[in-house]
Measured scan of single mutants.
Amino acid sequence: MQIFVKTLTGKTITLEVEPSDTIENVKAKIQDKEGIPPDQQRLIFAGKQLEDGRTLSDYNIQKDSTLHLVLR
């Protein structure tokens, strides 16, 4: 499925993911596309910070959802 990741600069990254993918996995995909190390990434969805060990389906993230990427 496709999800979107919006950065603070207003750029939107499109990712191909599975509901069973972990947040860690998603961060690795963002690193592949953007070169941002996962340890600098914070992903936010519906006002919640997403934890590495959980999956997209744990957070009820569905296709065409938009996550927000904050760098630390």
Rank of each mutant, 00 (worst) to 15 (best):
K29L: 11
R42N: 12
Q49E: 05
I3D: 00
K29H: 07
D32P: 04
D39A: 04
A46G: 14
V26G: 00
I44S: 08
L67W: 01
V17M: 12
P37R: 06
I23T: 07
E34H: 05
I3R: 00
N25H: 09
F45A: 08
L15E: 01
M1W: 10
G10S: 07
I36Y: 13
T14E: 11
N60V: 11
D21G: 07
T55N: 10
S20A: 10
L67P: 01
K33P: 03
V70Y: 05
Q31P: 02
E34P: 02
S20M: 11
D64A: 10
A46Q: 11
R42Y: 14
F45K: 02
E18M: 06
P37N: 15
H68A: 02
N25F: 09
F4N: 13
L56V: 15
Y59H: 03
G35F: 07
E24A: 03
I61V: 07
V70G: 08
A28I: 15
Y59F: 05
R42L: 14
K33I: 11
L50Q: 01
L15T: 02
L43K: 00
G10T: 09
T55F: 10
I61A: 02
K63Q: 07
V5M: 03
K6L: 09
H68E: 04
K29R: 09
Q41I: 10
G35H: 09
G35A: 05
I44Y: 13
K33E: 12
L8Q: 04
E34M: 14
E34G: 07
G10E: 13
E16V: 04
D64V: 02
K27I: 05
K33H: 13
P19L: 09
D32N: 11
L8E: 14
K63T: 12
V70A: 13
K6Q: 14
P19E: 11
Q62W: 10
L15V: 04
T7P: 11
I23A: 10
Q40G: 08
D32R: 04
T12W: 04
Q31D: 09
I61Q: 00
L43V: 09
Q40A: 12
I36W: 13
D32S: 08
L50I: 09
A46L: 07
L15M: 15
